[in-house]
Every structure is written in structure tokens, then in C-alpha cells.
Amino acid sequence: MEFIRTLNGDIAPEELGVTYSHDHLYCIPPLWQEKKIDDFMIDDIEASIKDVELFTAQGGQAVYDATAIDYGRKTAELKEISDRTGIKIIATAGFNKAVMWPGQMAGTGGTFQQWIDGHTRAEIRDHVVSELTVGMDGTSYKGGVAKFGTGYNTISEAEDKVTRAVLDAHKETGCPLHSHTELGTLILEQLAILRQEGVDPTRLTMAHVDRNPDHWLHLKAAETGLFMCFDGISRVKYHPESVLIDCILNLVRHGHEDQIVVGGDIARRTMYRNYGEGGLGLGYILESWAPRFMEQAGDAGFDGKALFEKFFVKNPQRAFVFKQ
């Protein structure tokens, strides 16, 4: 049996529709809140809804919200956004990365690091399984993806334990997997852990691969069959759009078009249109980037519309599926 788990229940994969495969629609990261970094506070539900409406106006239908508990996941608010806008939201179980773990973990009286250090791999697995099958944050709304992550060229002992626990949760539930790579580092090292644990890489979507625009590295990773998320679109401070499109087309040229998904990873008020900063907003990828990509793909001899359909519709249907 195959299905996609959204905050409004399980659906058939073909019901998902046009999908952003990595974004953050509402989140209050505990560590950044403690440090008073206001730009990371995506905490105005009305502003978030207005930006989602920019997305739906361009034909958007679904979003994978990659906010895990340590990045300030707010399940009830995500459900409200889904209900009020009609979009399907896939939410995140698991954890993000160790740099966030000095933040306070609600309901524990301590930090995420202390909670992780005080729990075994099996206990962390059970926590993630519960988020996937019972509910998150005291609600009955279930996660649709299990997430793990690593730091910038580092995998801490705690990150390694969490990663393997999340992989255990995947084995128990058949859930899809998502990983954070800091600036696109440790891609092959993460895949090595999957190999050690006997997990099929085709069940993993890896984030931020475009932050490290290394053609050789991308092809080596793609050979495993994983999904590669290009989610740095509009973040020219990392790389211009031309670099990202060149990376995508290089993968297509080598036959990996069925493994590419796209998102914006909007996690700052200054990147949203309706948080008072006038950023590009949630509509940008579909409204502006996708037409440019299709034009450049056509110039390179590919069918741009067919590639759009794969990246935004067909590939997410396979990337986010539970298999039981």
C-alpha cells in the first residue's frame, strides 16, 4: 500500500498536485527566539496565509513543510493554514541539526541536546514513530516525513545517533525520509550511513544540494537513486539562478530527471512577501523561476514543460510516499 500522509489525512499519491518540496510556512525556532533573531520568526499566521495565496494563485497545491520540532514546528498552526487555504501540507517528524539543540525543548525542562543525550537510539526511534503514527505536539495530526540532518562538514555523536534512530523509524513505518545538509556538505557521508543501516536511498530526499554546485558530487549521489532537492532558488547570496539551472540540466543530461524536486526553503521574514519586508514570497518559484527554467531547458534541447511536470508533480508523488 502506498499513500502520502498530510495534515488532513492520507491521500493517494496522484492527489498531491503541484508541490514545493521544501518550505517553512510557520515556525518559531526556540534557539533563534532565545537569541532574539527576529528574521527567523515565521509567526504571523495571517501573513503566512497571504503568501500561501500567492502560491495557490500560480497553481500551487501542496507543500512539504520541513520544520522539525527543534526548528519550532507548530502543528496546529500548519493545520489551520491548510484548512483556510486548501493546500495539502506534509509535515515533519524527526529532527533538524545539532546547531539548534541548545534551544529549549518544550515540556522537558531542558534543551534538545539534553533530551537527546538522555535517550537511547531506540527511545528516539519510538519518539519519531509516535510523531508519524499518533500525532505531533500534543495533537492528532501526524508527520508525513521523518527528517535528520548534519552540520557543516561535521556529524556530531548526537547527530549520528539521531540519524540512525530516524532510519529505524523509517524501517518500522515505511515513511519517506528527508535530510538536511549544511551548505550541501556530507552528501556522500550521509548516504554511507544509509548504506550501513540497510536503507534504500530511493526513500530519501536530500535538501540543499544546490548550495554545493559540484557536478561530480551530484552525479555520484544521483547514482544511488535518491531524490535531490534544489531549494536555494532566489538565494543569490549563495549562487545565482544560472548556477542552479546548470546543475539541474547537468543531472537531466545524465538521465536523472526523475530524481529532482524543487522548493524555496523560505525561512526568513525578509524572504516572505507579506511579513512587511516585501520579499519575493511563496509565489516566486512558480511565477518567475519556472518560466525561466523552462525557457533555458528548451534552449538546451529539453522539453521544459515536461521537466516542470516531473519536478513539481510526478517526482514529489514518489518522494513523499509511505510504503507499507
Rank of each mutant, 00 (worst) to 15 (best):
M1Y: 13
N8F: 12
D10C: 06
P13R: 12
T19Y: 01
Y20P: 01
Y26Q: 06
C27H: 12
I28G: 06
I28S: 09
K36R: 15
F40W: 13
M41H: 03
I49Q: 12
T56K: 01
G59T: 05
V63H: 03
A68T: 10
G72F: 00
K79C: 10
G86A: 15
N96I: 04
K97A: 14
V99W: 15
A106P: 03
T108A: 09
T111K: 06
T111Y: 09
D117T: 10
T120C: 02
E123V: 07
I124Q: 06
R125Y: 06
V129M: 02
L132C: 05
L132Y: 00
T133M: 12
V134A: 11
M136P: 02
D137L: 04
K142S: 06
G144L: 06
V145F: 02
F148N: 05
Y152R: 10
T154P: 00
R164E: 05
H170R: 01
H170P: 11
C175V: 10
H180Y: 12
T185I: 14
L188R: 09
L188W: 02
L188P: 05
L191R: 07
L194V: 13
Q196D: 15
P201M: 06
T205M: 14
M206V: 15
P213T: 02
D214A: 09
H218R: 00
L219F: 03
A221D: 05
A222D: 03
A222E: 03
A222I: 05
E223Q: 14
F227T: 15
M228E: 02
Y238S: 06
Y238M: 09
E241N: 13
S242A: 14
V243N: 01
L244K: 04
D246F: 01
I248G: 00
L249W: 00
L251C: 03
R253L: 01
Q259C: 02
Q259S: 03
I260N: 00
I260C: 00
I266F: 13
A267R: 05
N274R: 03
Y275F: 15
G283D: 12
L286F: 03
S288G: 01
S288K: 11
M294A: 07
E295P: 01
E295K: 12
E295N: 05
A297Q: 02
G298W: 02
F302Y: 13
L307I: 04
F308I: 00
K310E: 03
Q324D: 11
